[in-house]
């Protein structure tokens, strides 16, 4: 696969949310606004790229029977690093995303890419795969966030275009499921063309 293909497949063919349907927990929980979705996507991308690089480096020497624990320790380390960095330098962002930052450890996308891609490919390709999937995840979360913010709060990236509240269900859990479902339909219909 070409280098460019490694990056672009995360957007369409292997879109983590709409096609692989991985990482649903942060997708549903943190996309209450466009900004939250974007931040969550970027945080996941950070962990994804670094863990992909390290895992592709160490996978040849890791014994088969302990490879999952080793991968998880690596991923957990990067998540904790991210958590400390966010607490120190962007405390507001950390506060909004809160619990969902430590939960990146159990995000299926990260371990899934480690298992399915990074452990079998070169360091460079693994990094590109991390970037591609990361961008796909970030963009998807942002799009869901934009739709939910427009419908639920009547604003885009915090810029309000109606007075008062929107359709509040969309900033709550039911709206997350509805928007995800209908966007998935739309995505797959368009992707089939």
């Amino acid at each position: 696969m070409s280098k460019l293909g490694l990056i672009t497949k995360g957007l369409l063919k292997e879109n983590p949310t709409f096609v692989l349907v991985l990482g649903m927990c942060p997708t549903l929980a943190t996309t209450t606004s466009a900004m939250n979705g974007l931040e969550m996507g970027l945080a996941t991308m950070f962990v994804l790229i670094l863990s992909n690089i390290v895992i592709s480096l160490i996978s040849p020497v890791v014994p088969d029977k302990v490879h999952i624990p080793v991968y998880i320790v690596v991923i957990a380390t990067f998540v904790t690093v991210l958590q400390l960095l966010m607490q120190a330098f962007v405390p507001q962002v950390y506060e909004t995303l809160g619990l969902f930052i430590p939960l990146i450890v159990v995000n299926c996308i990260v371990l899934g890419r480690a298992e399915a891609f990074a452990s079998k490919n070169s360091v460079g390709d693994s990094a590109l795969d991390g970037i591609g999937i990361g961008i796909g995840f970030t963009l998807t979360l942002m799009v869901i966030g934009i739709v939910r913010e427009i419908l639920g709060s009547g604003s885009v990236f915090g810029w309000k275009f109606i007075a008062g509240d929107g359709i509040l269900a969309f900033v709550m859990a039911p709206g997350a499921f509805l928007v995800l479902g209908y966007l998935m339909v739309l995505f797959n219909k368009l992707a089939k063309r």
Binding site: I58, V61, V62, P63, D64, K65, V73, S119, K120
Partner: peptide
């Protein structure tokens, strides 16, 4: 591709990674 597991290298790799 991955190394064959035995007790020694499993303990060693986990300890090292941690």
């Amino acid at each position: 591709m991955a190394a064959v597991s035995n007790l020694k290298n499993m303990v060693l790799s986990l300890t090292l990674v941690c």
